[in-house]
């Protein structure tokens, strides 16, 4: 009888240990996802901050590109709105729009050699390029973490823990690469 009780007790303790371990594992993964999202967020904000300076620098040289500049400014405002909303899909869409209009702007710059040689512009371009890279790299890290976390939520047996403690799957962050879609105009 005593033996039976001991075995039962042992089983219960073992089960609790396993559940707690799984729960903690899920929390760690969820925090990792949160942390890598904040990395992306930092870079997106940095890009938003750089754009007004870029626009004002380009304005001084490229007076005929009003429309392109307005597009960039608009896309930035939209992206900032979306960022306030915290919805990963919306942010992704708005940011792809911004990437596209930025790429277009940088392409028109090719027609203004004075602007290209401007030191302010060169420093800004380096910062922008690097920020784009950082967004891409942090996005990759984020998506890796999300995949790992989502897998853990769906897979047996941790899916039981996930449903009972309300762990929700995170969304992937996608930015379409619009640069490749833009075909540069050829003038003769």
């Amino acid at each position: 009888m005593l033996l039976f009780v001991l075995i039962l007790l042992g089983l219960i303790v073992g089960a609790v240990v396993i559940v707690v371990g799984m729960y903690n594992g899920l929390v760690v993964l969820r925090n990792r996802v949160k942390n890598s999202w904040s990395q992306i967020d930092v870079q997106l904000k940095r890009r938003h901050d750089l754009i007004p300076n870029l626009v004002s620098t380009v304005k001084g040289y490229a007076t005929h590109e009003k429309e392109t500049l307005e597009n960039v400014t608009m896309a930035r405002a939209q992206a900032m709105n979306a960022n306030a909303g915290k919805d990963v899909k919306n942010i992704g869409a708005a940011e792809s729009e911004l990437s596209g209009s930025l790429a277009k702007l940088l392409m028109t710059v090719e027609n203004y050699p004075d602007l290209k040689a401007n030191e302010n512009f060169m420093a800004l371009q380096e910062e922008l390029t690097s920020t784009e890279n950082k967004i891409a790299f942090s996005r990759q890290a984020y998506n890796d973490d999300v995949m790992f976390y989502n897998n853990k939520i769906e897979v047996f047996p941790s899916n039981f823990i996930a449903t009972s403690f309300n762990f929700k799957a995170s969304e992937f962050f996608e930015i379409e690469n619009k640069e490749e879609k833009i075909v540069p105009e050829v003038k003769f």
């Binding site: 890598s36 990395q39 870079q43 380096e126 690097s130 950082k134 790299f137 942090s138």
Partner: peptide, 16 residues
């Protein structure tokens, strides 16, 4: 030298 620093920072982010 912002460029060098940026490259290192990019890789730091990629490597988390």
């Amino acid at each position: 030298y912002p460029r060098l620093y940026n490259i290192v920072e990019e890789m730091k982010i990629a490597a988390s």
